[in-house]
Design a protein around this nucleic acid. Structure first.
Length: 304
DNA sequence: GATCGTCAACTCGAGAGTGT
DNA sequence: ACACTCTCGAGTTGACGATC
């Protein structure tokens, strides 16, 4: 139903429904004009071609460029007897073409959609590669530079260029990739200083990783050695216990033959044994501090 | 010719991302 | 925090074809 003799039909001309814009609100003010403006028609193929030509020519990045496109567009359609379009309407129409999906059941896109997509790619590419010698930056009398989409002014006299940042370029959402960010990233990625810094950081990380690996291995070795030493300590403790036991059994045996011979004269003999109220006290002191006391019941006493 | 349904153009506001 | 920009959906309106 697009462009179906839109401007030729006089069927509905002259009869216009009452619209919200026609109705005054309670304050006597006009309600905001919404909806399709009266007299507007569908875009003709000629208008679409003209719009795409202008967009391709200017590659608009900011609103200023769209204003210039709207101005040129309306100048040309006026001569064709076609309705003028607002800057925002033209921008919306172009973006609508760009995001038009493939029709169901038909893998081919309309030619105007294909062209809009190509132009959109061109705009995106240009947004990331533009420079000050771009063709759309023209010196105009008075010393200022007129750019379709950037504010760059050059003062007279010392000729100081004042470059202001471009407005945020119209980019795709999800993620809203910033072309300026992309360029900054690319530029910084190839910056020799940055590369050197990156290499140094990389080497530092590799060194730290090697150190960490070495320390981990050392830690494992120490843990193994610790386990081995603990095993040896346990084994020695068992040997000591067995030796003490043998000693105690030996003492008991000798005491049975001569019960008090050993401790009769000197209760503190060289083995550290002491008879206390019928029991033999064996006290063992450790060089690091602390002591262990064993009590052995003298069978000979109970027998007596 | 009147009416109805569909499509397209358009505005508006909300929500979100980005830059200053 | 604020301004700007973009996307998206809702709502409004005009144009047009089909039908009676």
């Amino acid at each position: 139903g697009h462009n179906r003799k839109a401007h030729l039909s006089s069927k509905s001309k002259g009869k216009r429904r009452a619209t919200s814009a026609d109705l005054d609100n309670s304050d006597g003010e006009r309600a905001p004009i919404r909806g399709r403006p009266s007299g507007s028609s569908n875009y003709s193929a000629q208008e679409l071609t003209l719009l795409l030509d202008l967009v391709e020519d200017r590659c608009p990045i900011g609103k200023k460029a769209w204003g210039a496109i709207a101005k040129d567009f309306n100048n040309k359609v006026r001569g064709l007897g076609r309705p003028e379009r607002q800057e925002k309407a033209l921008e919306n129409k172009f973006k609508q073409l760009v995001k038009t999906k493939k029709p169901t059941g038909d893998a081919r896109r309309p030619p105007e959609v294909l062209r809009a997509l190509k132009i959109d790619d061109l705009i995106n590419a240009r947004a990331g590669t533009r420079d000050l010698s771009d063709s759309d930056v023209e010196l105009i009398p008075g010393g200022s530079i007129d750019s379709s989409d950037s504010d760059i002014e050059v003062d007279d006299g010392p000729r100081i260029a004042i470059a202001r940042r471009n407005p945020s370029p119209p980019l795709q959402r999800k993620p809203r990739a910033s072309n300026t960010d992309l360029m900054h990233k690319l530029a910084s990625a190839f910056d020799p200083d940055r590369q050197r810094t990156r290499d140094e950081a990389k080497a530092q990380r590799a060194f730290e990783a090697t150190q960490l690996f070495t320390l981990t291995q050392q830690n494992d070795t120490l843990r193994n050695q610790n386990m081995q030493l603990l095993g040896k300590v346990s084994e020695l403790e068992r040997k000591v216990d067995r030796a003490e036991l043998k000693l105690e059994f030996g003492m008991a045996h000798s005491a049975r033959s001569d019960p008090h011979r050993l401790l009769r004269d000197d209760p503190h003999d060289l083995t550290g044994l002491q008879r206390v109220r019928g029991k033999i006290r064996s006290e063992q002191t450790y060089p690091d501090g602390g002591a262990m006391t064993n009590w052995v019941t003298d069978i000979s006493d109970s027998d007596a």
